[in-house]
Design a protein around this nucleic acid. Structure first.
Lengths: 201, 201
DNA sequence: CCTAAAAGCAACGTATTGTTGCTTTAGATG
DNA sequence: CATCTAAAGCAACAATACGTTGCTTTTAGG
C-alpha cells in the first residue's frame, strides 16, 4: 500500500460547505428511501430535495449501495442505551418509547422499507441486521441484570424482545395515532405479567 | 351509465390463454413488488419474469397503480376465518400460524413493502388498510364470543390484535428461521396470561 | 373451421439517468 | 486578509431504459 506521489495532503477539507452538502444529501436520500424504497431512489430527486446539484450526488456516491448504506447508518444514534434504574418495568417503558420514536423517524421508516429488499442483497442485509442487533443487544443487556436480580424469571431474551418490540413496530407503522407513553406501559405490563405467569413466579 | 354502442359483446374471452397470461403477470408483479417495492417496479422486468411480452403488460394495465392494486389483492385468500372450537387459546394458535404463513407469502411480503409508500398514496393506502382490516375483523369476531363466555376479560380487541400479531410479524420478517406452531403457542400463552393477569380474572 | 380478441414481435420517440469539462465558490493556510 | 485549491455548481452531452404503436401470429369461442 505505497502512498501515491501526492501525499503532501495539501488540504483535505471536510469542513463547512462540504459537510453541509453531504448532510443534506443523506437527509434527502433517507427521506426518499423511506417513501419509495431502494428501487425507487432517483439521484435526480435526491439532488432536488437536497437543493444541491446532482453532480454532487453522483461524485460523492458513484454507486447506489454506498449511498443507501450511508443514509441508513449516518444518523444512527437510533435508540439510546437502556438505563438501569433498578426497576425493570419502568426502564422497559422508557425503552419502548424510545424504540417507537426511532421507528417512526425518517431513518427508521427507511430502514423498514429496506428490510424486504435486504432479503436478497447481502450487503444491505448486513446493514439492516446491524441496527436490529444493536437494539436487541441493548435490551438483552438490561434484561440479563433483571433476571439476575430475580425481577424476571429466566427467559430467552430474544423472545422477550420480539414480544415487546413487535407490537410497538406494528403500532407505529400501521396505527392511526402516535404511540404514547401510556401505550408503552400497557404493552410492557401485559408482556411482563404474561412472562411471569407462564414461566413461574 | 348508458351502455356504449358495442354492447353486442361479440366475444369477450377471458378464457384459457388470456387468463394464463394475466395470472403470470400478476404473480410476477407481486414477486417484484415484494423485492423492490412499488418504486422499483419495472414493467420490463414484470414481463420478463412472467415470460410474457411486455406489450401484454402495458396493454392490460395502462397504469401502474391498477397493476399494483390487482397484484396485491388478486391472490387474496390471505388468512382464513378463525374457527370456533370453544377453546379460544387453541383457536388463536391456529390463527397466528395462518397469519405467519400469510405474512411470509409473496403477497404478504409485497404488502409489507408497500405499507411505507402507502402513507402518502391514498389509493394504495385503501388497499393496504382493507387487508389489515379484514385480518383484524376476523380476530375481533372470535374474541368477542370468547369475552362473552368469560374465557377472556373484556379487552379492547385492537390492542389484543397488536399484541398477538406484532410479534408474529416481527418474527416472520426478521427472524432467521420459520415461524412454527410452537412459536404461535408461546406467543399466545404469554399474551393471554398477561391479559388475564392485568385485566382481572 | 371460421372469426376476431388478445398475445407476440419489432421498431420507434422520448424522458430519464448518469457523465464530463469547465467555471465559480468558499474553507484552509500562512 | 490574501492566496490556493478542493469541492460545488452549471450546462451540455451520451447512453440507456421506458413506454408506445402498427403489424403479424396465435388461439379461444362459436
Amino acid at each position: 500500500m505505497a502512498e501515491d506521489g501526492s501525499t503532501r495532503n495539501p488540504a483535505r477539507r471536510p469542513g463547512g460547505r462540504t459537510a453541509r452538502v453531504r448532510r443534506r444529501i443523506l437527509e434527502a436520500a433517507t427521506e426518499l428511501i423511506a417513501r419509495d424504497g431502494i428501487g425507487g431512489l432517483r439521484y435526480d430527486q435526491v439532488a432536488e430535495l437536497a437543493e444541491v446539484n446532482k453532480t454532487s450526488v453522483y461524485r460523492n456516491w458513484p454507486d447506489r449501495s454506498a449511498l443507501v448504506a450511508d443514509a441508513l447508518t449516518t444518523f444512527g444514534a437510533d435508540v439510546a442505551p437502556l438505563q438501569d434504574s433498578g426497576d425493570i418495568e419502568a426502564d422497559l417503558v422508557d425503552f419502548l418509547e424510545a424504540l417507537a420514536a426511532a421507528t417512526a423517524s425518517t431513518q427508521g421508516r427507511a430502514l423498514l422499507t429496506v428490510v424486504a429488499s435486504a432479503r436478497e442483497d447481502p450487503e444491505l442485509r448486513a446493514i439492516v441486521d446491524e441496527v436490529f442487533e444493536r437494539r436487541l443487544s441493548i435490551l438483552e443487556h438490561r434484561l440479563k441484570t433483571a433476571i439476575e436480580r430475580a425481577e424476571l424469571p429466566p427467559v430467552e431474551s430474544s423472545f422477550l424482545a420480539e414480544m415487546l418490540a413487535g407490537p410497538v413496530q406494528l403500532f407505529v407503522t400501521r396505527g392511526p395515532r402516535a404511540f404514547t407513553r401510556a401505550d408503552a406501559a400497557r404493552v410492557t405490563n401485559v408482556v411482563l405479567a404474561g412472562i411471569r405467569a407462564t414461566h413461574g413466579t
